[in-house]
Design a protein around this nucleic acid. Sequence first.
RNA 1: GGCCCCGUCGUCUAGAGGCCUAGGACGCCGCCCUCUCAAGGCGGUAACGCCGGUUCGAAUCCGGUCGGGGCUACCA
Length: 547
Amino acid sequence: MLSVELIDSLFPADLPSPAHWESWYPARTLPGGAEVTRFAPSPTGWLHIGGIFTAGVNQDIARHSGGRYVLRVEDTDRERFEEGALAQFEAGFEYFGIAADESDAAGGGYGPYTQSQRAAIYETYARELMRQGKAYPCFETPAQAEARVARQKAAGALPGYYGEWAIWRDAPEDQVRARLEAGDPYVVRFRSPGVGGARVSYTDLIRGEISADDNRNDVVLLKRSDSESRLPVYHFAHPVDDHLMGVTLVIRAEEWISSVPLHHQLFDALGFPRIPYAHVAPLMKQDGGSRRKLSKRKDPEASVGYYIEQGFPAEAVVYYLRGLANGRLAELPLPQALAEPLRLREFGVAGPLLDMVKLDDISADYVATLPGAEILDRVLTWAQVYDKDLASVVSAERELALRALAVEREGAENKRKDLRKWADFRPVYGFFFPEIFELVTDPSDARFGGLAPDLVRAMAAGFAAGYVEPGPDVEWFEQIRSLAGSLGFALRQKDYKKDPDAYPGSIADAAAVIRVLITGSRQSPGFTEVAAALGRAEVLRRVRALS
RNA sequence: GGCCCCGUCGUCUAGAGGCCUAGGACGCCGCCCUCUCAAGGCGGUAACGCCGGUUCGAAUCCGGUCGGGGCUACCA
């Protein structure tokens, strides 16, 4: 065992003691049953959508138990740190309505909530562990570590720093001193009490009893001594922070399950009471024949930014995610499902596939419940950031936009479900706005479905010549019908199907000509209402655009 | 390689030994409505990975096997 004098020389002389931090962060006084949870993302770019999922779960459990939800930033990896990530986190949490009760931004008595600002705390506990002989300095270089792992693999041994491979674990003091005097950098490693062959088990709040080999790896606690500030690795920061912050329940992703034996050893060595765990399944992605973890690198829909940029309503996304967590909630109507508490016991244990088609469906249903004015407001809010042209056109013609959105929506028994996300507005309703509508001028345009150009011209000309505006006593579509009839189109689909050669097309084809001219597409909301919303002049301008 | 987790329709799931001829939702297919699309109505397609055991009886319990995922970093 290293002398206290040597150990202390490794740390600042004024480093506080554990007792200092314990009293600095007093025990919480919360009602019985209240859970303190936390979400601890790493600032490496946009949050993974799974992060919104996990954060939402943590917040929900805290809120419904009368506890606190803490947001902690785990920025101990300088290499992967991305400037701007924090702002993106904030944007993501705000968009999805997941506000932390405690964080650097929200305040709270257990901060700072950013790990890089807690370096002294980790050092205190690292020194304490060393003083007790539960941790030690290790001078193995990265290159040596690599070589060690290669030798272990060749020898058929488990990779890791343990047993005979842990050469600094019991190194004599003068050897350590010599390296220190030479100025060699070192890491602080945990002296794991695990022995080969030992088994441990614990109860996961979602999965129940889980057993595994005990940890016997002397993991790194504090990274290289020659980095700017000596920061901890996750495994060490986790027990220290969660203990000091008074966290009572750790809900995190499944990939941490195999680290639980290590984490328990650390809690024990530190003298902290263990904290219960709940490990949630990761979101998956279908990839060819198999499935894999949804990856931010490969899958655009893995990034929270995607949902924001596309303008998926947060309510729909959250509802979908909650349904994935608790199947029970997926069967409930949205407002109810959002209000119901999540129950850990009901969580699925298998990683669900993210189904964007299902999300589309949920989202379309949700948007259909919104009044036109609200849809417009939200489209505008979105467009001001992601489609500025649309934003200026639409806000200049607010009344028209409202009329457009009212079609088959206001007072309709079955409301249109053609908007899944705000980015859909332009392709679906853009034609209502003259400024961004592109006139159709070519009679042989593919959108006319291969109809003879002469017929297309005749339809357009006839329609324009006798145009009657929609009104209370007007059977508006009748003018298309009679025009189509006089040009020889089959007036009933059935007739046309029976004998396609006898007609140039059916009434549907004839109507399509007018539809394409007016809306630029073969598909659109109700014809009559569209014409009414556009007004006589604009309808005629578009129909007459044909050269 | 070692250890861990998981395995019901294409997808999300209900199912905790007889209520299962396996239910619902999304998708898909068909029909109806119809000037197109969306919506809506009606109907249909489709699953307990496999093999053994326990039991009068198994999707449900046990074992094995196969498949998928995770961990095995001075990343989290």
